[in-house]
């Protein structure tokens, strides 16, 4: 068995929205292993994004424990979480979240400049097949290209984990497949652990494991006997 990357014990998150309390994660337990591709499936509000945000150090848990390797993330303050994100985590968001005033190259450079052992930005963009578009601004790129810039930005620091929240959500199927292809390529080449949140059930076939979410908990875990390649996906 490979090394444990994440382990969660009774992880709970409560949001206060106005006068109402929303229980986003209910005492969730979880283990994720190095090099795994894990797909998180479930309806809106089932807690997938909340879990991913806490695992990525973007948000705090209300109670419970979450470890990254031996480090307890739930104990870290803002400064500690920033250092953790900087060293270990790459993010891919549904809406790409590129800085519109920076070119593809510069959006990647934004991260490589603050990382310890990054790739060169053009190297990262080559990995996602965007060499010819490195000097384009986000507004000059298609949605799929923008998402691949976001992936290049996420992998350029050689992160240990790649956390992807609906990476294909805003894309058509052909472009979506290219994006999944890029993510799996990173996993294969660099051994990066990849977590993908999706609404799209067909993507589950590329995963080692699929976690099904409902009401802030993992309702079911499915292990694929064989992973499909991105090219084999249809939706």
């Amino acid at each position: 068995m490979a090394d444990l990357v994440f382990s969660a014990r009774a992880l709970t998150k409560t949001y206060t929205s106005g006068e109402t309390q929303v229980l986003a994660l209910r005492a969730l337990d979880l283990e994720i292993f190095a090099g795994e591709v894990v797909v998180l499936l479930g309806p809106s509000g089932s807690g997938k994004s909340t879990l991913l945000n806490i695992m990525g150090g973007l948000d705090h848990a209300t109670s419970g424990q979450l470890f990254f390797r031996d480090q307890e993330l739930t104990n870290l303050d803002d400064r500690g979480l920033t250092a953790y994100r900087r060293q270990h985590v790459g993010f891919v968001f549904q809406f790409y979240n590129l800085i519109p005033s920076l070119t593809a190259y510069e959006n990647v450079a934004l991260v490589t400049e603050i990382s310890d052992h990054p790739m060169r930005p053009d190297e990262a963009l080559a990995l996602v097949g965007l060499e010819p578009r490195v000097h384009h601004f986000p507004a000059q790129l298609s949605g799929g290209e923008q998402q691949r810039v976001a992936i290049a930005r996420a992998i350029a620091k050689r992160p240990d984990v790649l956390l992807c929240d609906e990476p294909t959500g805003a894309l058509d199927s052909k472009t979506g497949i290219r994006v999944i292809e890029a993510l799996l390529g990173i996993n294969a080449q660099l051994g990066t652990t990849v977590l993908i949140i999706t609404h799209n059930a067909s993507i589950q076939d590329v995963a080692d494991r699929v976690l099904f979410f409902a009401d802030g908990q993992i309702s079911r875990v499915h292990k694929n006997k064989a992973r499909r390649t991105a090219a084999e996906l249809v939706w």
Partner: peptide, 16 residues
């Protein structure tokens, strides 16, 4: 606000 959030998500420190 959102760009500040993104910069922080990418690992930029508050001071930066």
């Amino acid at each position: 606000r959102e760009q500040i959030g993104l910069l922080k998500a990418l690992g930029y420190r508050n001071a930066a």
